[in-house]
Design a protein around this nucleic acid. Structure first.
Lengths: 204, 204, 204, 204
DNA sequence: TATGAATGAGCTTTCATTCAT
DNA sequence: AATGAATGAAAGCTCATTCAT
């Protein structure tokens, strides 16, 4: 039993160290040696914890997923007003950190592997869960907003949430290609303004 | 005299054939042999037209860029009303075809290579031009809409356009991961409804 | 008949042009395209005159041989005194020209191919003929010198000639490796002084 | 723990094995597979010890240089008389062994690569050091001989040594092309006789 | 006759994976 | 458990040679 815990703990440790190199070089270009170096282990040792290189990516993706969920949840716990929550969520989702950039790059690579259907594991589930989590979060806010009369009653909450949640990734991607010119703050704020006008309109 | 070949034309042909395999397997995983097979040519023949594997990707990206620009332009020529134009643009941008899926996948890989800084060519320019083209198109529609009073005067056209143009990619990406459940039509329509409400609200 | 002459003439032309590139890059590293370019011909055309790449080298070596023989002969025709002849020969053999450097490099490559036994043709004969020609020339001078009493009677003319003829190549090779420091004139002159002392000593 | 391997020792071992194949086929024509076979290793293993194929040649040349220096030095340690030393040196330099033939062939290829300027390393230094070592050795003997009155006082020791040292290579090369007819012993002896007459002449 | 487009064998090099220690 | 030496499959790329025009 303690053995197994140790094993799992070490897998997590290795995966953690792997994230950085993977984001920097990509999965294909990252060698087992790179990962071993990052984890300060011998190349052979990695194979005591992972059967193949791809298995490392599975572990990495799982871990990233858990961390992303946790940080999303944490950001929203403390807020009550649905509208404020939505704004907070957007701001959180589009708040750039170097760590997040790494993770976003790896997600993108998982996305690519998935749409190409080349993976043996099921990254697709990680990505869909993530997508659904985010969409449901947004949808629940919109629904709550509708209930409180802050949002038009005929809004298709799921569809709009689908659009919003998706758009975050697009904004992030555009920002990363053109950091100097793409002012993510300004873009986000303008969009929030747009949302809010929409949400609390016509008390006519 | 050997067969006279228009080298540039042949390059385009090869690049065209390459798009499909590249989208399917990705640049790194696609071998020259794959591309040669797709073009029904010998491996060596490819090297008559491209000095390196990466040069193929350059040609492919240039070609994709030109085609994307052309199809965008064509879609918008026939419409006059700015609001209708915007709707048409969104519908065009999010109109799925197998061809477009291929292209989107390759763009995504170019994106990845760029953010990792691993490429020697300047894919970044292809991507930025594309991004800017789209953004400027949207912004010009919004500005025109503002002039005609169809859109609130305090809108930051560039910022909002930045958001919209970016969001297309996110929506596309989410759709491709979950084609069965992500109803792109419904999502798009809901968003358009949202946009339009926003645009012509207030002479109440 | 005229056809054949033309063919042979063109072979010679091509071989002539080939010499320069071959000396510059070596046989292995020189591509047929290089040779075609040097001859201002299409790559395919070369194959109308030579069946294989190695056949070009055969032609080149034959031609170099003929030219070398001719220039050696010419240099010696006009001199009568055997001692002067020998000195003249040494000076001629060690007289550096860029053309000669090229030729020497190709001979060296032929030598290498021969000692490795990798060639299908018989470069060995070209090299031996050359070696023998030179040796016999020197030997005949020594013998003549012996007859005229200018040289000790117990000299083994062939053996000494073998040494002298061989030494030219070594001197040339050393010079080419260290052109700045290896003063070929000074070295040659010192050796000639040494030879002459030897040849006309004993007024006993 | 894996087998502990002295990397430097293994490099030397591989280089040692490589010498034979390199001499047989030449650097360009020798494949990594050839070298791996000669060393009874897998192709990939070679790359644990050498980053590139050329690096193998560097190691080989360094090693050859060291061995050559050592064997030259050893041959001369035990002799005191300068004249005897010179004779011993000549005999050593022109003493044929199969090992030495291999080494001479590789030196010749290094020479070719150098005069063509195609190498990235500095083989030229290996060759020049060798050349200089040999020349200085000979020159010091001549100088000593001059001091002891065994050699004419007006001899330019360096120049003559340059000639002698160079000639060894030429003799070797001629021998290797025509082993049956070129009697290296006879040629050498004749030349030594010639040298000695010169050195201790005038007791008249 | 002259050409260069087409080809694939064969090269160097990389790297996931295995395994003896 | 930990290691890195060993391996060979597989990749990109070159080039002598062929051949249709």
């Amino acid at each position: 039993m303690p053995k197994i815990v140790d094993r799992e703990k070490k897998r997590v440790e290795i995966a953690q160290k792997a994230i950085e190199v993977l984001a920097k070089r990509g999965f294909q270009a990252t060698t087992i040696q790179d990962i071993a170096d990052a984890a300060s282990l011998g190349k052979g040792t990695i194979y005591h914890y992972f059967k193949t290189k791809e298995e490392i990516l599975w572990a990495v993706s799982e871990q990233m997923f858990r961390e992303t969920e946790r940080s999303l949840g944490a950001a929203l716990l403390k807020i009550n007003e649905p509208m404020d929550k939505l704004v907070a969520l957007i701001e959180e989702a589009l708040h750039i950190t170097e760590e997040l950039e790494h993770i976003f790059i790896i997600y993108s690579e998982l996305w690519l592997m998935t749409v190409r259907g080349e993976q043996t594991g099921d990254f697709v589930n990680v990505l869909r869960r993530l997508q659904n989590d985010m969409t449901n979060l947004v949808a629940s806010m919109i629904r709550e907003g509708k209930k409180q009369g802050l949002w038009p009653g005929d809004t298709d909450a799921d569809a709009l949430a689908g659009y919003l949640a998706s758009s975050f990734d697009g904004v992030f991607a555009h920002y990363m290609i053109d950091k100097e010119n793409f002012d993510i703050k300004r873009v986000t704020n303008e969009f929030i303004k747009f949302l809010i006008k929409q949400s609390a309109p016509k008390n006519d």
